[in-house]
Design a protein around this nucleic acid. Structure first.
Lengths: 199, 199
DNA sequence: AGGTCTAAATTTAGCCCTAAACGGATCTGA
DNA sequence: TCAGATCCGTTTAGGGCTAAATTTAGACCT
């Protein structure tokens, strides 16, 4: 969720963003937590300061990346697939199972991504007689070229977006995010924890 | 259309494992950056330590929230809409424009969200003869009840997910995320910056 | 060997979103 | 007064994803 507190007084009203359609504002985690406290005293707001900005940043980064890649005629899901293969090094081939693990998407999503990329000649798919049934996805020269032509653009752009933080802040943020991510992955592993926990 | 939490599925008593399909692993930002360096020396990897974990955390939190809410028969987009209205306080009404701003989605998405929620009797929509053409969306008692019945579950669950960080770490992370978010929003405002800049 | 079990990939149904085209009403200026 | 510029909201086209059903081919057992 992402939202804000008060309808009335505000500060924006300036400039008209050029970006496609959507607006920019979106209110801060601080304001959202305050609004819950005001409307529903006792609401457990402690996680909002972390979860909300993470969600908002992911949305902003994701939308931005999609727009940058649209110019190159690729979509983010395809570039993600190709990048994973490219990064894995020669022979640039992985099983669909491995692809799902590394991209955090379901097997069905991998199947569809690969089918689209194969259609465009960016990867090939071959059934190796693995144990139960392993399918190996391999990067084609065209796929390799596409990664080379776009990945620096994306990373360079994103480096610019986080450049507002000092090197020390970037380091500290990276560390904290790493700790949180590791811990969250661990907790999700043992789900059935409190899952919903009721009141 | 209102959907029930967990339909029929009763034939098989045994279950317990909850996680639907997808795996857990996913490589860390550190490994990803190292892989790019190894495969393509010179790749601008400086942003990976920040952007990648943010993206992964948003995915994990989002998937988790969707599963928690599915039990209550709601989807995340609808709860987001209802929450924004609920938090705005009496009379629990906002324009579609304002809704888009606060949820970071396009006008088209707002239109669809409201249409679905209206269909389920969670909000009402009325054209006020505002300036150019303003549509006011108002929370119904049913919508209000749904928020009350679910929002604590979600927030409580998420508080548990970030509980692995010490209070000091949580505070520091909240601060850094806030700074980064503010800065990124500012930079996105003056787009046309380097946009693609690449070579 | 033959029958079942199981793991992996694919297919299907349904949802949500963005971008762009559209529809309508207000305001502006000649 | 009327054309045109604007500004909003809605609609449409198409993409991507999850969850669940389905298919497929080794593995295991008797």
């Amino acid at each position: 969720m992402a939202r804000d507190p008060q309808p009335g007084r505000d500060d924006d009203g300036r400039d008209g963003a050029r970006t496609p359609q959507h607006p920019a504002p979106a209110h801060s985690a601080r304001e959202i937590a305050a609004a819950w406290e005001r409307e529903r005293p006792g609401t457990p707001v402690s996680s909002i300061g972390i979860v909300t900005p993470i969600w908002q940043l992911a949305k902003l980064f994701g939308d931005d990346r999609r727009r940058v890649l649209a110019r190159a005629g690729v979509d983010t899901a395809t570039l993600d697939l190709l990048s994973v293969l490219r990064r894995s090094g020669p022979p640039y081939a992985l099983s669909t199972r491995e692809l799902g693990h590394r991209s955090l998407v379901t097997a069905g999503a991998v199947s569809q991504r690969v089918a689209r990329a194969e259609q465009e000649g960016l990867v090939t798919r071959e059934a190796t007689g693995g144990r139960p049934r392993t399918v190996l996805v391999t990067l084609t020269p065209a796929g390799h070229d596409l990664v080379e032509a776009t990945v620096d653009q994306v990373l360079h752009r994103e480096a610019g977006l986080v450049a507002g933080l000092t090197p020390e802040q970037q380091t500290r943020l990276t560390e904290l995010l790493h700790v949180l991510l590791t811990d969250v992955q661990h907790r999700m592993g043992d789900d059935r924890l409190s899952q919903v926990g009721g009141e």
